[in-house]
Design a protein around this nucleic acid. Structure first.
Ligand SMILES: [Mn+2]
Ligand SMILES: [Mn+2]
Ligand SMILES: [Zn+2]
Ligand SMILES: [Zn+2]
Lengths: 140, 140
DNA sequence: AAAAGATCAAGAATGATTCTTATTTTTATT
DNA sequence: AATAAAAATAAGAATCATTCTTGATCTTTT
């Protein structure tokens, strides 16, 4: 029952452009890697994965691609302390749970309908444009 | 009505040890700087502040002091993306709001009695040991 | 086809942080 | 109090993720 076919178009019918960003071979493979393996990889991780398909790609290009994808709102950066940045193609509002027992990072969603003001003491007039929530712990 | 006297003992009656960490002159000044100026400074910021009191202190020592204070649970590190770490002496559970209009970082507390499960979809068996919440935006 | 623009590869540069080592200070022991 | 052992500090080197620079290559427009 293993199925790694999400809704990722293959090379032939992959859109030539996403959110105004031209999908070059490198950007496409970087993006596909993120979509197929939702493990919040680092740039190095992506580099190693993508080299299988594009053996000549450089780490700098992986950084460039990731940056371009982030700038165009196609993927998001995830930060854990001072570790290398990680990348996530899940665009829904969510936080991250770093399970220290397995090392895996899980997406955590907010309960439907919850507003920030429901659980935070926000100074009057606060306009929040971005939320980053990181949880650490383990699965009992 | 200016009062920068919080509950920060002065040099004479400053505890010789906190949480099992010996309070050397350097550690004391670093800690006092954080307590007196609650602006979430970087190590560089602390370095520049503390040099007024201990002109011979080195940046490496400031890093060492901050690290020792963090390890002993006396202060906390705060992360904003890939920027330099910042330090916070507020030990109550709280998040941070980076006000992009003023550049200031504000402590944000949770509403009393709120539990994580109240607003997050947590997988069953999740044991959370640490929460990091970062908000970005502006004060209208 | 030519020109302009965008992307890429490779390696150098940057900057925050950590590490190394010699020196100084503090604490424990005689 | 003197001595030995342990801890902390200062200074600078090393590290590592990330960014920058530059020349080559690919795309799009004229
Ligand atoms: Mn591989
Ligand atoms: Mn100053
Ligand atoms: Zn995610
Ligand atoms: Zn704080």
């Amino acid at each position: 029952m293993v199925s790694n076919s999400e809704n990722i178009p293959d090379a032939e019918n992959f859109p030539a452009e996403i959110n105004g960003l031209r999908m070059t071979r490198q950007r496409r493979e970087v993006y596909k890697s993120l979509m197929e393996n939702r493990v919040h990889p680092t740039a190095q991780d992506v580099f190693m994965e993508v080299k299988d398909k594009l053996p000549q790609i450089s780490l700098a290009t992986v950084y460039n691609c990731l940056e371009a994808l982030v700038q165009h709102g196609i993927i998001r950066q995830v930060h854990f302390d001072r570790e290398s940045c990680r990348y996530c193609p899940n665009l829904h509002e969510h936080g991250h749970f770093h399970d220290h027992s397995t090392g895996k990072i899980h997406d955590i969603t907010f309960k439907p309908g919850v507003k920030l003001e429901d659980f935070l003491e926000l100074p009057a007039g606060t306009q929040i444009t971005n939320i980053e929530l990181t949880l650490r712990g383990s699965l009992a």
